[in-house]
Design a protein around this nucleic acid. Structure first.
Lengths: 180, 180
DNA sequence: AGACATCTGGACCGATCGGTCCAGCCCCGC
DNA sequence: GCGGGGCTGGACCGATCGGTCCAGATGTCT
């Protein structure tokens, strides 16, 4: 059955709350009450405390989004159509009634100035995404794969930020439309 | 001499610290000690407390950046060259040795889920920028000014975010180069 | 000089923060 | 039956959070 362990629950709740309120915006108490677990569990599974939990959650979500990238580009016949599919996929992540959640990297970036561990995690996820996009660009025969990948990453992050600002998937859908 | 009032000092310090640590990341004590003023002054000039100070500081910085946009596009002969100039101008804001500061809007966006006042401020600044960019696109005879403005805003915000992640102006310079 | 409005200085408050610590439950192999 | 990790439950801690309040310094009128 592969029942989710308490550690997984902690990661999941932390990831969600982090993306909603940012690193400094969530308290441990909030994460704990959302997961229904006591403090002891947290510090057993993540001895490094909030820092460790947040970095682990970010890396986890980052990997999930990379899978989303791969899936979007899997049956694309060009980089542009893959990019449009990706934008639509990210837009589709937004729960219909619920709040728009930030990009996991963006959500810890503000606090990364004080927390080297967070900055490393943010950097690594970004680099992974960029490399992944560049690989797809190369595979699809793009003339300047590195440029295309970096530019798309900028556009995607920007659109995600705008979506957060206006609490609507529209900017992401807009980007998808502009890519066609 | 137009000496800066204490209110101005408060706004300036708050703007800087907000962009470095985010809304939830700065404490009033920190802003106060940076400005060398007591709590009484803050709550006299900004009875709404942290919320009011942060929204005022964001609107202020937002307006300053809009002036930067106007300046960058002032002597541009096309939307693309204006865009490149703007990216370079934002990159130039980054203090050589110091930390990369976030976009003022991005820095309050995470907390805007809990603070309607912040979300309104973020939205307004974004809308102003978009309108401003669209006006320049129209003026310079772009075929689809709205699309161009929105896309550029996405790219600029994304590049700014990447710059924050790798603590270097390179993504912004990269965007400027790709625009040429 | 005296009265009034403006602004500052800082003590103080309850709530919440992240983090520590340990008693004890539970389930395992013996 | 029993011993011993793996894990949980939660009391507790000092620090810091945003916010309140007011005495009094300062400037500006009449």
């Amino acid at each position: 059955m592969n029942a989710p362990t308490n550690r997984d629950t902690l990661l999941r709740c932390a990831a969600t709350l982090l993306r909603q309120k940012g690193y400094d915006g969530v308290g441990l108490a909030e994460i704990l009450s959302a997961s229904g677990l006591p403090k002891g569990s947290l510090y057993y599974h993540f001895p490094g405390g909030k820092r460790e939990l947040a970095t682990a959650a970010t890396l986890c979500t980052g990997a999930a989004i990379q899978r989303l990238i791969d899936r979007a580009f899997a049956d694309a016949d060009s980089f542009a159509t893959g990019a449009a599919a990706l934008a639509r996929a990210i837009a589709a992540l937004i729960p219909p009634g619920g709040p728009v959640q930030a990009c996991p990297v963006a959500s810890i970036l503000q606090a990364s100035g004080q927390e080297p561990a967070l900055r490393d995690a943010a950097r690594q996820v970004m680099n992974d995404w960029a490399a992944c996009l560049a690989a797809h660009a190369t595979r699809l025969g793009h003339a300047a794969p590195q440029d295309a990948a970096d530019l798309l990453l900028m556009q995607m992050e920007g659109a995600w930020l705008l979506a957060l600002a206006e609490q609507s998937p529209r900017p992401l859908e807009r980007l998808a439309a502009l890519k066609t």
